[in-house]
């Protein structure tokens, strides 16, 4: 199962992902620059990513809790999601995400 991540420099990486892992955990486990300071509790909005338009429909709709946290994202777009709320599954094999500037570790 692959997760395609576009990093802050615009380079694309195909990361091996495991079913049931949160996309945030896959990104962090591979050592990419993502703050994710609350550790996946949907409480900080620092694992923000942009979902590729062709994939956005494949994801479950954001919960009210996630929508509330997206309000705390300063560079939010229509395709913004919190990567801690995306659970990897066969249906998401090949999911393409772009890391958001506001979720960089040094921001």
């Amino acid at each position: 199962m692959k997760l395609i991540v576009v990093d802050h420099e615009g380079n694309e990486h195909a990361l091996e992902a495991l079913e049931g892992w949160r996309a945030m955990e896959v990104i962090r486990d591979w050592g990419f620059d993502i703050k994710a300071e609350c550790g996946g509790a949907c409480s900080c909005a620092t694992c923000h990513v942009f979902v590729d338009d062709t994939w956005i429909e494949m994801l479950d709709t954001a919960s009210e809790e996630e929508e509330n946290m997206l309000d705390m994202v300063p560079d939010v777009e229509a395709n913004s999601r919190l990567s801690c709320q995306i659970l990897m599954s066969d249906a998401l094999d090949g999911l393409r995400l772009k890391l958001a500037p506001s979720a960089r570790g040094d921001e």
Binding site: E37, P74, D75, P101, S102, E107
Partner: peptide
């Protein structure tokens, strides 16, 4: 912990 809590700066 993760350092000092500071206001989030919009990346503008």
């Amino acid at each position: 912990g993760g350092g000092s809590f500071q206001p989030k700066r919009p990346p503008i």
